[in-house]
Design a protein around this nucleic acid. Structure first.
Lengths: 253, 253
DNA sequence: ACCTGAACACCGTTCAAGT
DNA sequence: ACCTGAACACCGTTCAAGT
């Protein structure tokens, strides 16, 4: 008797080995593009949190280890996915109206994140420096700032402010809400929001009917389903107006 | 013959079972606070990515499953950790000078994220709605907006813009750089940055010496080690100036 | 060059059992 | 009430082997 492990003498009960079930032999050959495509689809469907390399391999009908021929690690695959989602966000150069160019850049970035919902948190919060060095973005922003009359002194600071502002709103707006038991969580938050004591928070209570589920912290519907457009527009216009003021001050002083 | 699995007839080679090694019997009893504290320390040290519930249990000298008495899941523990990191970010009410209050709020939020480095991505990009409904923050921002003369119409939009801006910069600034082989990655990026073709990107090339490692996309040193203060100050002042302009327009129209 | 196949060292979580 | 202990169904990754 080998021991108390009853299963040891039986056939290994590991479920059906690692054989890729769905597509025993895929017609099209494996490629980096196909892997990125499959990963993109899976993240859009289930979120980054529950994205798994093994699942990607399963849907492609190959062994998990086959992916390693194209990507050195899971993170490298995610970086490629982020790079793919960031295509075409830089508007073509525009004469004279830097405000319009910047507005369009903000709009495109948000649009790109909206078409790949669960990717905003990766692009904004993790992969910004990992992504494949998008020089057209950097160059475009610098061009815009110079066109707006920005002196060399504050150029770098303003560049950093622009990039952060660019990623900011979509990252927060499209942040994933709790994945486990989302219905229960939503119901719970909804109830707590509606039970906010009016005398402790008079200002909040007065505007609650317009804020409930339509503002950060007090919302339970994710930004993918319910965009907060008004806030975004305000955000963009605030930033552009503030940049105008800041540039005027910089040129004067 | 049971099969080809040679190890089946031997003692299970799983490494030393799950026994908690470091502290065989902890003097202080387990508690939600101690777990949060341990989790906070571990995230600060190794990042959210490699944070594990089992490791937290190990450092506390208990079985992994003991944590489940206090938290229903790993995510719920992370939410508690986020809530702990967000303490005291709302400044006390201030008379007359809403700009100063807002500036202080921005400063405090960034400071809180800086003291818990790897948490910004969670607070900003994941837990904003999961966190424990910080009504003082909501109320404080609404108060500030009203004090600034904001009409009821655009109030919600401006609130959303403020919250997004609040989280935006620190989330991007403190985003974790690639964890695996950071040295190699940094060297690689550094080299690529310095090899940027000057004729293809004339504007960029002219400012490269001040931008390399000191601006988003072109940096390889993480924001925890090298803060981008100038960009943050510009960002805050741009937002406040823009908000002033926007409010003036709202009151007029 | 491109992929299979087995194995390693982990995970989070569930459930029953101890005290 | 609070924690142990074993087990389940996964992970990402390495390494050798096939073709």
């Amino acid at each position: 008797m080998p021991g108390t492990d009853a299963s040891a003498t039986q056939a290994p009960r590991r479920q059906a080995t690692d054989e890729p079930k769905p597509k025993p032999k895929s017609a099209t050959p494996l490629s980096a593009e196909r892997i990125v495509e499959a990963a993109l689809a899976q993240i859009a469907e289930r979120g980054v949190e529950r994205f798994s390399l093994r699942d990607v391999a399963r849907t492609l009908g190959v062994y998990p280890t086959a992916v390693y021929w194209y990507f050195r690690s899971r993170n490298e695959l995610l970086a490629a996915v982020c790079a793919a989602a960031q295509r075409d966000i830089v508007p073509p150069p525009r004469q004279g109206d830097w405000q319009a160019w910047l507005r369009e850049l903000f709009r495109r970035y948000r649009q790109a994140m909206r078409t790949h919902p669960h990717l905003a948190q990766l692009v904004g919060a993790q992969m910004l420096s990992n992504a494949s060095l998008d020089l057209t973005l950097v160059d475009g922003i610098l061009h815009m700032l110079q066109q707006a009359g920005c002196p060399d002194g504050p150029l770098v600071d303003l560049y950093n402010a622009v990039v952060a502002a660019l990623c900011g709103y979509p990252t927060i707006e499209l942040a994933p809400l709790p994945a486990e038991d989302p219905m229960g969580w939503a119901a719970d938050l909804q109830q707590r929001v509606h039970q906010i004591p009016a005398m402790q928070h008079p200002v909040l209570a007065r505007h609650l009917h317009r804020m409930a589920d339509r503002s950060f912290v007090l919302r339970w519907t994710p930004g993918t389903q319910q965009p907060l457009d008004g806030g975004f527009d305000a955000y963009v216009e605030i930033f552009i107006a503030g940049l105008e003021a800041r540039l005027a001050a910089a040129r004067a002083g």
